[in-house]
Design a protein around this nucleic acid. Structure first.
Lengths: 216, 216, 216, 216
DNA sequence: GCCTAACCGAGACGGTACGTCCGGTCTTTTT
DNA sequence: AAAAAGACCGGACGTACCGTCTCGGTTAGGC
């Protein structure tokens, strides 16, 4: 966001105050349009019109279309995973399933559509691709990271497992299913991943054959 | 591609024949431009000009920019995985590593750039998203599917493993790393995935807890 | 027309002969299309298709669209004024009226439409503008020139009249009415011009006040 | 022009106002380009670029190339004949010659070139042909109509003359010379027409043989 | 009676203008 | 000064047309 006031600390005393309700209206409009026509199909005019806002009002808050979409999608995701209220059922499988069910099933459809719009952000080298994925999926990965670490501490799994890689398994495969295969990313699929990929990998990680640095 | 002749079977004998060298020239030009300026930066005029083709010649073959890019990327991928010449080293790990090394490391950089261009295709609901991912990644999944099945037949792993899900592990996580995290998708990363996720999951798949239908 | 053979004298004896019936078919098709959609609306493909000819067959005969249209319109006009069979009624008025009635009234509507198409030829500096007008209207001017000269020889009018200018009066005003005012150029209008402009001007030409060179 | 506001009467108060200086800039650019490369050679991009305007700004005002050219040429002509300041020298000949000289001789060359561009407008049935000629030549005809009427009132000529037809003599023949014959339409030619056609026709109109209505 | 070159219809080709649509900026009026 | 509305510049999109070239096939001669 481009809020000069946030930086200076000086509350820019002159003139009319920013109408902060516009932020939400614009982001909601952006999400609606994204879900309906996708990123490429969405235009800034569509968003402004639907939010009953002028384009200048939009551009006063976000410098470009990608940044707006980024914030819009992040806003949607923020509601989903709450890192301060992760489930704690005693077993990793229980925690992960609880995390999956935490979000009403009907929201998934909507978010799926919006996520589609997200894909093309990666095309902008500006680091927006990175940021965008991060904003949406990183909290999810972080939740997995915490749940898996907790399970290791409990002694459920060997401390030798690659937590970083395994935290990414479900989000990555979910993203692939949503964005590339365009199949629904529902609870059944989620549970199947847990049982056929993630848990087996954690259990089977006793004898990691070799090296495993992942970052470059 | 828009090739009516494919449907009728009747090869539409009248008039000048399509110059099939133009297809290749246009696709190559598209790949060059994609690698240089990305999907959003690429224009149809750039591609046509570089291929020394008229725009009509381009649009006679591909109905839109996304469809052209789709074919271009698919063409690039096709060279990568050859399903008829899969490696056979005796162990799954050996096969997978051989598959990874099969492609010269320096090509990866180029393909990574082009793959970035692919991302935004998913934004077009037209099923292009599906098709695009499919065209590029599906052959890779198929290769994994064959290698894993063969390993099971050899008795390396239990026949109870979910071959479908596990075939997608590496491509999905590779795509996430490339397109969202924007980190290099090199051999080290690839081998790490094999050793810390895929092989453990295959080994640990002895007691799949519950249901596991994946397709819808 | 581009008939190389006409120039070289060497009749290019080898190969298949031009099918001269195609010329007529193409010109007729061109006239039809011109009448229906005007010069700008007419395309070479339309003409070729309607004449059941290939574009190459058209371009083998005429080098460009303007040249084709020029010939097409000239062909139409040729039927109209026959310089070898000018009327001779004894009076200029009788001759002119006879010339007007010589062409069936119903053809006028068609030719009017086609003439509209002619207008834009003038936009091509290539001398086609000149040629086009010339091909269509010049024979008519020439007819007037001969009829007026004959009337002067008969003593109907003073030899001092400017035959060149007066020969152009009716064609010019007819063209203006057709092409610019888009009103019908029928016999009534024609006769009115004769009686209210041309004949008075011939009669009143006793005292030409001053200079009168017209060409530059 | 596409100015919705003209119809409603309600001046559509919201939003940024049309920048009326753009109209003039675009029309001037169009005239320059027309004079340089002619109607067919002129492109909308050329006009927009030269006027430092975007194409959307051009198309917001004129729906198509022909309509733009029409307005551009009309603008040029408007400067030429001022119906409120017609010359009054006491004789029709003096008035007509004054009208001719009223416009600097060097402008004629420029206008001639632009007029050439006008010709092909007639090819668009849309009434643009009619409108175009009208916009350019009708004011001239009207000037002649007024001058001739005034001369008749003064008793210079018989009230029986066909003012309508005679007012069109010089513009029609001038248009023919410019557009079809492509010869210069200069003062000498103009004066010659007055002396060898128009004035004789007015003088000789004593005994009109028949006459009959001209409009249909 | 066959060979060969030029013809024929059909349509792909390179190039280029058209008119539309967007992204991001700027202006006008109202709040 | 911020808001809604919308005009502004720049530039890509996809369509259509011109004039050329290529394809398979046909129609003449000349041998």
């Amino acid at each position: 966001m481009l809020d000069a006031e946030d930086i200076t600390g000086e509350p820019s005393r002159l003139g009319r105050k920013r109408d902060s309700t516009r932020d939400a209206a614009i982001l909601d409009a952006a999400l609606e349009v994204l879900a309906e026509v996708g990123y490429e199909g969405m235009t800034m005019d569509m968003v402004a019109t639907r939010a009953k806002a002028g384009k200048a009002t939009v551009y006063r808050r976000w410098a470009s279309k990608p940044e707006l979409v980024l914030d819009a999608v992040a806003r949607m995701k923020r509601a989903q995973v709450d890192l301060d209220q992760l489930p704690d059922t005693g077993s990793l499988r229980g925690d992960l399933v609880a995390l999956a069910k935490q979000e009403p099933e009907e929201d998934a459809e909507h978010r799926l559509k919006v996520m589609g719009g997200l894909a093309s952000l990666a095309a902008h080298d500006l680091g927006l691709g990175e940021a965008s994925g991060t904003a949406v999926i990183e909290p999810w990965i972080e939740a997995n990271r915490q749940l898996i670490s907790r399970a290791i501490e409990r002694g459920e799994f060997s401390p030798d497992v690659d937590v970083e890689a395994l935290s990414r398994v479900i989000p990555s495969m979910g993203a692939y299913r949503s964005l590339v295969e365009r199949k629904p990313f529902n609870g059944d699929f989620f549970v199947a991943l847990i049982d056929t990929v993630l848990l087996p990998a954690l259990r089977g990680a006793s004898v990691p054959t070799k090296e495993d640095d992942m970052d470059t």
